[in-house]
Amino acid sequence: MTLVSPGDAPVPVPPSVDGRRLGQAEQHDALAARNSRLIPGELLTIKIRRSEVPAGGDIYQEFQVPYQKWMRVLDALNWIAENAAADLAFRWFCGSKMCGTCAVRMNGREVLACWEAVEPSMVIEPLRNLPVIRDLVVDRTRYEDKVASLEPWIERHEPYAQFPEPLTHKQMKDASKALDCISCMCCYSACPVIGLGNLTDFAGPAPLVQLGQTALDPRNSPGKVRRSLELTGIFNCVSCYKCEEVCPASIPIVSRIIEPLKAKAAQLVPEMAKHSFALRDIVAGRGRVDPGELVLRVQGLRALGNLRRILRLFARGKINPMKTLLGTKTGAAEAAGRLLGNRVGKQ
């Protein structure tokens, strides 16, 4: 088995047991494995979450659908609409992973109905984090409004350097990844921070990918990009990679969109990245993170409002105020100081 890293560079061949892949076979984590579980004509059990009209509340309606070779979730939905429930509401258009309209949750995972193999037993639900219009159809207005507010276009105030303008693949590598987005909302549904509603001002992965198409384009004016980034709440991203996991377009959303956008924010709106600079300064000074200093520097006096927790942590020896106040260095401090410098905002 050969593993492939982003640059297609070889990494060491794993030994016979691969801890990272344990469970893959039992869980049928491959298209061929899933298809091999079914024979044509066999009945699939499909439960669909339906908006119950008029009584209110949702119900799960069960259907038995005969399996056909290479059957997709969309084929199953179409079979149900044609043979069992003509009033089932679901969206699709291209059927070939282009239009991004047929995303649903199948057994708790965001999938494109047109691109996902059926499973013997499926629960199909509408996407999360967007209001349901009916059955599997969601209202995308929230997303569209957010994208519009970010003004995802290019503004230029300076004349072009020359024509044709020099632009390298390397300069466009992140923006061009963002251009693969089909706006299917799988990532928006999978994002746990968006799942918390209005708790934070985080724009969410899908709007950030849309913004990345132009904000990561080197031709965009920094002032324009700054205005957009100020509205993203981007440092509320928890870096869980849930968005990458469900993206049918395989966009590395965290590493190629959100992190480069965070880097832009750190440059153009440094106050947004206050905690990141604090962490870097602490590591540069001490070699390792002192959690007490990090919290004090990021939260200031607000941190002391949480006195009960501080005492609790102190009682169990989890924090050491003396170390924090004395700025105790570790053996790694010298190397960290040399490699990071201590200039705030350094790129």
Binding site: S5, P6, V11, R20, R21, G23, D29, K242, E244
Partner: peptide
């Protein structure tokens, strides 16, 4: 947690939801 199961497709990670290493 996240960072020994995702990002998917890199470093030998499978779909994180199929991990069984801890349960096994």
């Amino acid at each position: 947690g996240c960072h020994i199961t995702r990002p998917p497709g890199r470093y030998g990670f499978v779909d994180s939801r199929n991990n069984r290493a801890l349960e096994l």
